[in-house]
Amino acid sequence: MIYVTDGSFEGILSAIFEAYENKEIPESIVSRDFYQISLDTDVKEIHTNEEKSGRVYNAIIEKMSHEALETIYKAWLSEHYEVGTALYKYVKIGLKIGKKVLSYLQNPDVLLVNDLAHKVAFESHRFLGILRFKKLKNGLYYSRIEPDNNITMLIAEHFAQRMSDQSWIIHDAKRNVYALYDTNEIVFTNEEIPITSDGIVDTMFEQLWKNYFKTIAIESRKNPRLQRQYMPRRYWKNLTEVK
């Protein structure tokens, strides 16, 4: 049996609930986006249900701890094609052994969830550093990012605290997710906000920054490999100093 969900976090939790409710053991839980029709296996469409997902959500906190919930949620943000199935197996183990599931790295499913969560946490920390704002004509600061994982939700709060007196937009151009901050609160939206390149007026400080970046390197220690290891090429197109 394959469960097909809408791919949302609540969708996966609803699927886990139904597996328990129907006393079924689905061989996988996949998102509609990744689902490939198979003639050999039964398929069940899962409808995302707030009450069902809420019960699994609470069970994770009660039986396993907040830390486990955080791990599960971060793993989901990886958008990995097998994350639904892995989360199902993780929860199943967790309901049996409780919060020890966090440490049970000998188990391949637990290890996968743990690794995915770790990757997401690592990338969101990385973006606290490599995200760049450009100042727009209207005084807003705009940042375009294209992270591997869906991390906008995880990083927005950091910038709201740090740049608490400036209005900004963080735009995940891969997923069309926006975080908007108006010096008061953060709003997340998928509705497109038009930003034209002539709205950006930031040449002076970008020039200074690029110049600083070049100057600070020690010529006789040049090491492009090490540089790329920390700052992989795929991020460069949104990085002012190396673009």
Binding site: Y212, K214, A217
Partner: peptide, 30 residues
């Protein structure tokens, strides 16, 4: 910590913002 309406705070773990051509991290305007 940040005070509302002001700029900036410090992060306990530190944050690297870029890496120069010699592979060393850039975190502060030095």
């Amino acid at each position: 910590s940040n005070k509302k309406g002001q700029l900036g705070n410090a992060s306990m773990a530190g944050i690297c913002h870029s890496w120069a051509d010699d592979g060393r991290c850039i975190s502060l305007l030095k």
